[in-house]
Amino acid sequence: MATITLKLNNKSHIIDADPKMPLLWAIRDLVGLTGTKYGCGIAQCGACTVHLEGKPVRSCSIPVSVAANKNVTTIEGLSSDNSDVVQRAWILEQVPQCGYCQSGQIMAASALLKSKPNPSDKDIDMAMQGHICRCGTYPRIRKAIKKAAQLMAQK
């Protein structure tokens, strides 16, 4: 066990954890933020995606010690009032069905749009192919990413 400082959404949390514990479980069970989801545990589904220093990563496959003292952003940190442009686009296009995969999808889309404010279909395929949606919301995810790009351009 080790004492680790986690910087989640600009807030520091001091936790006592096995340094090998995946960041995912530290966020969910030790800090208690449950927006980040468990889907596979082996970096196959993307449900657990968070930003580590601004880059999308699979929190199920990163030991919590690696994230210590670094800036981690979860879905809760994007905005809690849905003012973020990706969240707005997701609502406008009515993307979620069950909603379980959507935190991860949104975190991936948000990272994509930061590096490519006007992504092509190919770019979207590349950025989102690691994310499973069992409900099959893919057509709407694509639309929503394009919508978010539009909203960003209008600003």
């Binding site: 933020l33 927006g35 879905i75 849905n82 997701w90 609502i91 979620p96 909603g99």
Partner: peptide, 8 residues
């Protein structure tokens, strides 16, 4: 939908 895009 709103609660499903912000982790709530």
């Amino acid at each position: 939908t709103p609660t499903k895009v912000n982790g709530k």
